[in-house]
């Protein structure tokens, strides 16, 4: 019995040590979506790629005919930063006011989502980050379509 008890005692000691070691390590906070998207640089790359896709889409480019592209790009970057829990301030209009009376159809909204998904697929980000961002933006559908 004696050797077995010793072995058991040793194992318990090791376990306690391992557990205390785990408990003692600093808990890593889960990365925010903003971090998963690559932070400021990542968002910048997303917005740039996305803007080119919108410009290349004959059905969508018309919606930006009277848009100041520099303002749009900066504002979208701020918006994506805020939506993904990043350290930014979005000073643009809320989604319903920002899109009111633009005559946006479901088809246009869907085309834009498809373009955004293509943009996200082209970035070095995880499927989880891509789909989490799509989830947060999809929730804005009702607001965007409110005053069409």
């Amino acid at each position: 019995m004696y050797p077995i008890l010793t072995r058991g005692y040793l194992a318990a000691l090791l376990l306690a040590w391992a557990l205390s070691g785990c408990a003692g390590a600093k808990p890593q906070p889960a990365p925010t979506l903003y971090q998963q998207l690559g932070g400021e640089q990542g968002i910048h790359a997303i917005v740039e790629d996305f803007a080119y896709r919108l410009a290349d889409d004959p059905e969508l480019v018309g919606f930006f005919a009277n848009t100041n592209i520099d303002y749009f790009v900066g504002s979208l970057a701020d918006y994506l930063c805020v939506v993904s829990d990043g350290p930014c301030v979005y000073q643009g209009a809320p989604m319903d006011k920002a899109h009111q009376h633009m005559g946006i159809h479901e088809a246009d909204f869907n085309r834009l989502v498809d373009a955004l998904q293509a943009t996200l697929l082209a970035q070095p980000i995880s499927a989880s980050a891509r789909n989490q961002l799509l989830k947060r933006l999809a929730a804005q559908h009702a607001a965007v379509m409110r005053y069409q």
């Binding site: 995880s126 499927a127 989880s128 980050a129 891509r130 789909n131 989490q132 799509l134 989830k135 999809a138």
Partner: peptide, 9 residues
Amino acid sequence: FFDAVAGRN
């Protein structure tokens, strides 16, 4: 359901 299982929809 977005990001439901292993990041997939």
